[in-house]
């Protein structure tokens, strides 16, 4: 059952990433050069829209989402900086390179091979720094702004309605998506 769902959702996600233009490195590079905001609008709208419905549905008891919050630690920031450099020079991230390769882009395929090497280098080096400050938690680690209702996750805006907190952030993101110009 879960494998069948994986096929359906993976296929849909692949089609969507391709159709929104995320697997097109020209679009991505120009977004990062602040010349073309198509993808930025899509990303802001997508996060805002999904977050709003997620927290409102969850608070109304319509659904019980499978929240899974990742830990915040120093390495998220440092890893993010390394990630950003590679992202900018290539125009791909892990998901879009996979979709791009499927769509027949040769540069995306080379990126995937590079990615496998990068992940392998991480596997080889992880043991040498796994006990360092890199993994020091920030704000308690698994923490969110809005209350997910999941006991083990810390909440910053504690005691405030989660629909209000997440909804407020979501609306700001949606407004940004609407007012951003399509291009410079």
């Amino acid at each position: 059952m879960s494998v069948l769902l994986a096929i359906v959702f993976g296929l849909l996600f692949g089609v969507i990433l391709h159709k929104v233009g995320a697997a097109n490195p020209h679009r991505l590079i120009n977004m990062l050069r602040l010349k073309d905001f198509h993808l930025m609008k899509v990303i802001f709208f997508g996060i805002g829209f999904s977050s709003l419905l997620l927290f409102v549905f969850s608070a109304a008891g319509v659904i019980e989402p499978n929240f899974s919050v990742k830990t915040a630690y120093i390495g998220v920031g440092i890893g993010g900086i390394i990630f950003g450099i590679g992202w900018a020079i290539s125009g791909f991230c892990p998901g879009t390179s996979i979709v791009g390769a499927g769509a027949g882009r040769k540069d995306a395929l080379v990126f995937v091979v590079g990615g496998l090497v990068g992940a392998f280098l991480y596997m080889l080096t992880y043991g040498s720094f796994k006990s360092t400050f890199l993994f020091d938690k920030i704000l308690g680690g698994k923490v969110t702004l809005a209350d997910t209702g999941v006991e083990k996750y810390h909440v910053i805006a504690e005691g405030i309605s989660s629909s209000l907190v997440a909804g407020g952030i979501a609306i700001v993101m949606i407004v940004i998506a609407i007012i951003l110009p399509k291009s410079e």
Partner: peptide, 20 residues
């Protein structure tokens, strides 16, 4: 792009996730 792939996946694993 190869170097980009190396940096992106090394960084993503250190960070524990990527754009998705």
């Amino acid at each position: 792009v190869f170097i980009g792939g190396v940096l992106v996946l090394y960084g993503a694993r250190m960070a524990g996730g990527c754009s998705s």
